[in-house]
Computed example of a mutant assay.
Amino acid sequence: MSSIPPAPLDAAQLALAAAPFGSSRMLPRAAYLSDDVLAWEREHLFSGWMCLGRSAEIKPGGLRAESVGDYGVLLTRDPEGELRAFENACRHRGHELLPCGGSSDAKAIVCPYHAWSYRHDGSLIGAPHFKEVEKFDKSTLGLKSVRVQEWHGWVFVDRTGAAEDFTSYIGELEGIVAPYDAGTLVTAETHTYEVAANWKVIVENYQECYHCSMIHPELCRVSPPTSGENVELPGNWVGGWMDLRQGAETMSLDGRSGGVAMARLDEHELSTVMYVAVLPNLLISLHPDYVMTHQLVPLSPGTTRITCSWAFPADVAAAEGFSPAYAVDFWDLTNRQDWSACESVQRGMAAPHYEAGPLAPDEDGVYHFVSKMARAYQGS
């Protein structure tokens, strides 16, 4: 992968963040507050592989548009089920083909401005009043393709087309996620939050339970806050696992499951929860009986939109009387506790004399993320 220019951050402070664990510091204050840093991140971090949500949201014959920073990507799935991605811009005068965040079931993609129409494979069907135009070659005016990949039910795009091979990007996370058969799971509920904190503050919070005994009494009742360990394996992700307390079946307010454990999990996976941050914007929480996803979209240096979804085995979700509330209620409460803490961190870092502090021995997971970010900011 080609080198990238360094971010507009103090080089000495970045060196501290990249120093060995035990002597390192958090990222410099400007990394969380600066418009210029967010612009750099959008150009260099959010330009490679990034998650756009669950692939089941795009049904055969369906369309969905998502923002990827300064412009949108249009996802299509043809009647045969093949997923494609295109720049969300008409080849005529650039009008968006579908508003970002919108979806549609349609036999063709029709621009709402001048009615140019396209097939689900991006080829141009027709353009009003162009039949008599000489040298008008429809074959040269198909939609511009964007690299796309489905992985265990999540959709990733690489809008530059220059990112590393997806297999290398995911690395050894493949073996960790595969037993959960996440691609076959059914999303039962989705919540959207707008959090007044930088996206990295949210990822850092997710990578440690050093804070759990202070703000998560419900979580601590079902999972020891000092349990588990973080792992370092190849791939553009960071993560680790935590134990469930003896007698607890899953993460819920009473530790009981309202569903059924995944069929292919081993003894360790049945007694732990795995937390993974797939960089830059996907958090995956692997429970014995459900998978929770947080998809992050930075709206500004101090605001992040988070889409949280809960997915269950299809037969469980379809069973009469099933309710996802046991998982949703637990995590909605825990999420809101986290968001409150993250927003307080963001306000605190805005103080004029705030300086990045050291990491505690329990924050090795945070270090894995922060040091990755520091190296990326350095252009390495």
Score class of each variant (00 low, 15 high):
residue 266 D to E: 05
residue 266 D to A: 03
residue 266 D to W: 06
residue 267 E to Y: 03
residue 267 E to Q: 12
residue 268 H to Q: 05
residue 268 H to N: 02
residue 268 H to D: 02
residue 269 E to P: 02
residue 270 L to V: 03
residue 270 L to D: 04
residue 270 L to T: 06
residue 270 L to G: 06
residue 271 S to C: 02
residue 271 S to I: 00
residue 271 S to Q: 08
residue 271 S to R: 12
residue 271 S to H: 06
residue 272 T to H: 05
residue 272 T to M: 02
residue 272 T to S: 06
residue 273 V to P: 10
residue 274 M to Q: 13
residue 274 M to P: 03
residue 274 M to L: 08
residue 275 Y to N: 07
residue 275 Y to W: 05
residue 275 Y to C: 04
residue 276 V to E: 06
residue 276 V to K: 02
residue 276 V to R: 06
residue 277 A to M: 11
residue 278 V to T: 14
residue 279 L to T: 13
residue 279 L to A: 12
residue 279 L to M: 15
residue 280 P to W: 05
residue 280 P to I: 08
residue 281 N to W: 07
residue 281 N to L: 10
residue 282 L to H: 01
residue 283 L to N: 14
residue 283 L to M: 14
residue 285 S to I: 11
residue 285 S to H: 13
residue 285 S to L: 14
residue 286 L to M: 03
residue 286 L to P: 00
residue 287 H to V: 00
residue 288 P to V: 08
residue 288 P to I: 08
residue 288 P to W: 07
residue 288 P to G: 09
residue 288 P to A: 07
residue 288 P to H: 08
residue 289 D to H: 08
residue 290 Y to M: 11
residue 290 Y to T: 05
residue 291 V to S: 01
residue 291 V to M: 01
residue 291 V to T: 05
residue 292 M to G: 06
residue 293 T to S: 11
residue 293 T to C: 02
residue 293 T to V: 05
residue 294 H to E: 03
residue 294 H to G: 03
residue 295 Q to N: 14
residue 295 Q to L: 15
residue 296 L to Q: 05
residue 296 L to H: 12
residue 296 L to W: 04
residue 296 L to Y: 14
residue 297 V to T: 15
residue 298 P to M: 12
residue 298 P to A: 11
residue 299 L to K: 08
residue 299 L to G: 01
residue 300 S to F: 12
residue 300 S to W: 12
residue 301 P to G: 10
residue 301 P to K: 13
residue 302 G to S: 15
residue 302 G to A: 14
residue 302 G to P: 01
residue 303 T to G: 03
residue 303 T to W: 01
residue 303 T to F: 00
residue 304 T to G: 13
residue 304 T to M: 15
